[in-house]
C-alpha cells in the first residue's frame, strides 16, 4: 500500500467516525465535534493529494486546506453562538429536548 492510499484510508475512516458521531450523538457539542472531524478528513485528503499528486509545486491543495480551516473556524463560531441561544431558552443543549418544532 502506498503512502497516498494509506492517507486516503485514514481520511475516509476519520470522515466515517465524524459522520457516525454527528448522527448518533444527542449532545449538540459532540455533534459539532463530529462535523469538525468530517471537515478535517477532507483537509487531509487535500494535503495528501497535493503532496503525492501530479503537480506538488502549485500549492493548490494546501491553499484549499488553509481556507477550509478558516471556514471551519467561522462555522464553529456560528454553531456555538446558536448553541448558546438554544441554551438560554431551554437550559439544556441536548438535541432530544429541542423538539418545539415538529409536524
Amino acid at each position: 500500500m502506498t503512502t497516498l492510499q494509506l492517507c486516503l484510508v485514514i481520511s475516509s475512516l476519520l470522515f466515517c467516525i465524524g459522520l457516525v458521531g454527528a448522527l448518533s450523538r444527542s449532545h449538540t457539542i459532540l455533534v459539532l465535534l463530529g462535523i469538525e472531524l468530517m471537515l478535517n478528513a477532507a483537509n487531509m485528503n487535500f494535503i495528501a493529494f497535493w503532496r503525492f499528486g501530479a503537480s506538488p509545486t502549485a500549492a493548490t491543495g494546501v491553499l484549499f486546506a488553509i481556507f477550509s480551516i478558516a471556514v471551519a473556524a467561522a462555522e464553529a463560531a456560528v454553531g456555538l453562538a446558536l448553541v448558546i441561544a438554544v441554551y438560554r431558552h431551554q437550559k439544556s443543549v441536548r438535541l432530544e429536548e429541542a423538539n418545539r418544532l415538529k409536524g
Partner: peptide, 12 residues
C-alpha cells in the same frame, strides 16, 4: 425559542 431551535437545526 423557536427561532433559536430553527437556527440550530438548520446549522447542524
Amino acid at each position: 425559542p423557536d427561532s433559536a431551535e430553527a437556527g440550530l437545526k438548520y446549522f447542524l
